[in-house]
Write a protein that binds this DNA or RNA. Structure first.
Lengths: 155, 155
DNA sequence: ATTCCACATGGTACTTTATGTCAACTAGTT
DNA sequence: AACTAGTTGACATAAAGTACCATGTGGAAT
């Protein structure tokens, strides 16, 4: 019954471990810890949120290490770095094609899987001379939590 | 001949001034200075870049003021705040519908006007319960400058 | 299993980016 | 010209991220 989500999570974890090996990254305790955390969370945590959660674990991580590992993962293509209007980098272990909903009020980020939104192709030519590799659609709005706050005392 | 771009710039400026008045914002010297600068620049400057440029003007702006005025303009809808993967907030006085090219290397931002890319409509329903107001497509790639650097010494 | 070393980590210091506070100033109204 | 709400500047502080380097460790070689 609920064995399926467990399986997909540990599958994701194993795939990311394999990705580390493929990139020549040694699988340290700290990297595994971060990977496990990233796989479990779907709320696009910031580096500091991850640090908060992990620092008190058995053999916790240092803040520097969290930042450094995240950058390493991004460079290896294992994790995506997304930027919210709140100007804090957020991280996402789901590298499949999807888009993001960002709350204008609190910065919360949620996923939006809607293949109907995917562009047919990338714009080939553009006057600015950029080479385009990828794109992402960011939807701005209000999360359920901030909607209810707005109703109570409209600031 | 070249009177047209001049006109459109000062037109934009006057439209933004009108926007200030409409929002009840008094038109201080500092706000006008910032507006002029934002209208003139199309490179999506960061708050500090604007401060750098303006601090030595006659009656220059303080850093605090630059940040504060920009936030004010964003809240009034006169200026858009965009967030790049470099996690520095950038500002854009062009509030018309368009999208952005972001350089993965240096964070440079260029505009992409391509109405063919605009979505037919916003996704009505989404499982996360967000109210969606708007969207923006961000294209990731390499700017011309970083392309040439990459060719010289492939890091 | 033990040795070894390139790679990784922890801790501190530091930089950059952004916000809070409050006295002094000014735009725009009266 | 005077008044006042709104705005600014300077400083202090917070938050986010990076640099440095001595110490520690994963995993290949023996």
């Amino acid at each position: 019954m609920n064995s399926l989500p467990q399986n997909t999570l540990s599958e994701k974890f194993r795939r990311l471990e394999a990705g580390c090996r493929a990139s020549g990254l040694s699988l340290t305790h700290q990297r595994r810890t971060l990977l496990r955390c990233l796989v479990r969370r779907s709320d696009h945590p910031t580096a500091d949120q991850l640090y908060e959660e992990l620092q008190n674990d058995v053999g916790g991580l240092s803040r520097t290490t969290v930042y450094r590992i995240l950058e390493t993962f991004v460079r290896a293509g294992l994790v995506t770095k997304i930027s919210s209007p709140q100007a804090k980098a957020r991280f996402d272990a789901n590298t499949g094609k999807h888009h993001h909903l960002v709350c204008e009020q609190c910065g919360r980020v949620a996923d939006l899987f809607d293949s109907g939104l995917n562009l047919r192709g990338l714009p080939e030519e553009n006057s600015s001379g950029f080479i385009i590799y990828d794109y992402e659609i960011t939807f701005n709005g209000l999360c359920p939590h901030c909607q209810s706050i707005g109703e109570e005392h409209k600031s």
